[in-house]
Amino acid sequence: QWKVGDKCSAIWSEDGCIYPATIASIDFKRETCVVVYTGYGNREEQNLSDLLSPICE
């Protein structure tokens, strides 16, 4: 189960590419979260089910 502060990978809606991110907040009722893309600072809402394991850098 994901928690705030977890590192993950998420698909950015603008280009469909996968980027490393950190979970900033979680809404368990809606099963969504807000991620912050590492190195970019962009925030975006994602479905918890769409999150991927962190990418090894």
Rank of each mutant, 00 (worst) to 15 (best):
N42I: 15
I11A: 05
T38P: 00
P54V: 08
V35I: 12
Q46H: 13
A24R: 07
K3H: 13
R43H: 10
E31A: 13
L51W: 05
L48E: 04
V36I: 14
F28S: 09
T38S: 09
L48K: 01
N42K: 10
I23L: 02
W12N: 09
I55W: 12
K3Y: 13
D27R: 07
I23F: 03
L52F: 11
E57F: 13
V36P: 01
A24V: 15
E44N: 05
G16M: 06
Y37W: 06
Y40K: 12
E45S: 06
Y19T: 02
L48F: 05
S49T: 08
V4A: 01
L48Y: 04
P20Y: 12
Y37F: 15
L52Q: 02
E31L: 14
S25Q: 06
N47C: 10
S13A: 08
C8T: 00
G5Q: 02
C17F: 11
I11Y: 08
W2P: 14
Q46M: 08
V34A: 02
C17D: 07
V34F: 06
I23A: 04
L48W: 06
I26E: 02
T32I: 10
Q1H: 11
Y19V: 02
P54C: 11
A21K: 03
L52H: 01
N47H: 12
V4H: 08
Y40L: 14
C56Q: 15
F28G: 06
E45F: 07
C17Q: 15
V35F: 06
P54N: 05
G41P: 02
F28Q: 08
C33S: 00
I18M: 07
G39I: 11
Y19W: 04
G5D: 09
R30E: 08
I11E: 03
Y37H: 00
V4T: 07
T38E: 13
S53G: 11
W2A: 14
V34N: 01
I11F: 07
C8R: 00
A24M: 14
E14P: 04
D6V: 06
Q1N: 13
L48G: 04
C33M: 05
E31S: 12
S13M: 07
L51M: 05
P54R: 11
Y40P: 03
E31W: 12
D15P: 04
G39C: 13
E14S: 08
S13T: 08
V4C: 13
D15S: 04
S53L: 15
E57Y: 13
T32Y: 07
F28I: 11
G5A: 04
I23S: 04
I18R: 12
S53N: 09
K7I: 11
N42F: 15
S49M: 07
V36H: 01
K7M: 12
S53A: 14
D27K: 06
I55R: 11
R43W: 13
D6T: 00
E44W: 08
E14T: 09
E14A: 13
W2D: 14
V35L: 06
I18C: 15
W12M: 03
S9D: 03
Y37A: 00
F28V: 09
C56A: 14
I26T: 01
